[in-house]
Write a protein that binds this DNA or RNA. Sequence first.
DNA 1: CTCAAAAACAGGCAAAACCCCTTTTCCACA
DNA 2: TGTGGAAAAGGGGTTTTGCCTGTTTTTGAG
Lengths: 217, 217
Amino acid sequence: MKQTANYPIAIVDDHFLFASSLSKLVNSYESFTVQFQATNGKDLQQKLETAEQLPKIILLDIKMPVMDGFETAVWLQEHYPDIKILALSMEDDENTILRMLRLGANGYLLKDIHPDKLKVALEEVIQKGFYHTEKVAEHLLHSLHQPAKPDKDDFRENELIFMQLASTEMTYSQIASEMNLSPKTIDGYRHELFNRLEVKNRVGLVMYALKNGLIEF
Amino acid sequence: MKQTANYPIAIVDDHFLFASSLSKLVNSYESFTVQFQATNGKDLQQKLETAEQLPKIILLDIKMPVMDGFETAVWLQEHYPDIKILALSMEDDENTILRMLRLGANGYLLKDIHPDKLKVALEEVIQKGFYHTEKVAEHLLHSLHQPAKPDKDDFRENELIFMQLASTEMTYSQIASEMNLSPKTIDGYRHELFNRLEVKNRVGLVMYALKNGLIEF
DNA sequence: CTCAAAAACAGGCAAAACCCCTTTTCCACA
DNA sequence: TGTGGAAAAGGGGTTTTGCCTGTTTTTGAG
């Protein structure tokens, strides 16, 4: 048996089948061993507290119930800054990637990569501290030329509520009473948002909000 | 080494990392061996043609580029009716499940199941010819009480085009000229759809169409 | 070829959406 | 404490949408 360093890995993904399969794959790499799996951020918190040994790298899914990848990354940065985070996601949405990297992820892998890349990624994160695929780099470069997509933080609470309600069949005056505001204030919200987002009408506003994840549908 | 039956399996999933990981898992079951992986339906077609041995079961993802799970299931039914299909998806949307089962899938697994269930599912499909989790059964029972969600086939081509255009910032008269129809005809489409879909206005129509996958956004 | 169903088209009217500009209210902060 | 800027509210308009009640044209089965 060869004597090589063996790094403990944790996998956080709500898709149990995927997480388990991925474990098998990671365990087949001789330098890495999956220490535990968690199904969301909360679950991870508990498992880290009771762990006798901390994982070196956490493979972190983004879309999860209860506590998603973003929240988890923030929490990890605060409580376990030494653990490297490798985000693992299907979303190749530029905003998502950027957001995750800004939150301190040491790499961003798309779930459709070749398994060999995962091994390389793990190794590079251990050695260099980070890893990025060409695809992610490409996306990042692209996003430099593309105007930044908006975030929920770019809007006031009332604006978000208004947009959510604008996506229903309510008239503006109904929205006004729902929000305990004058119809004229709603008129103002609309005008302001139309201008800022460069949309021409209510449908345009709703589609914009949906496309950018500002409202649920 | 125990001497047990060994069934060949094929995996069709565009997420290469998941497919590869899943292979490891399936290969760890002594009665099953992954014969090949494909990244979409087209890819599967080619690999089946050149395969010296046909897989007994195909683990089939639904959302895939090029040729998705639905198309693939139809094609398989026609060309290789003996191969069992186990649909494997994240969507627990009732319509999707029903549609897949109607297209001849012998089982429907959600990607967040426990890996043990996959083993059971594979075994049962071999023995009984089908397998369904409680969750799927539950969804199916639920769908009996829930009115059936609409399909693209429930709409005429023009209605779908109209709905797609209604989700833009165009006015109805602009939509009319875009579709080379009189504004009054568009008026008629709208009236008809509002009635049938029980929506009150354009936003309601657009949201309905989006929720039911009738239009892209 | 015939005829009934459907699809397309139409006028008119009220309501809602949209637009521009002004005034009041509120609150942070100097 | 009063003041400047932002949020809220208002007045008064045009355009678009939504909803009737119809008529004409197209389509397709027999």
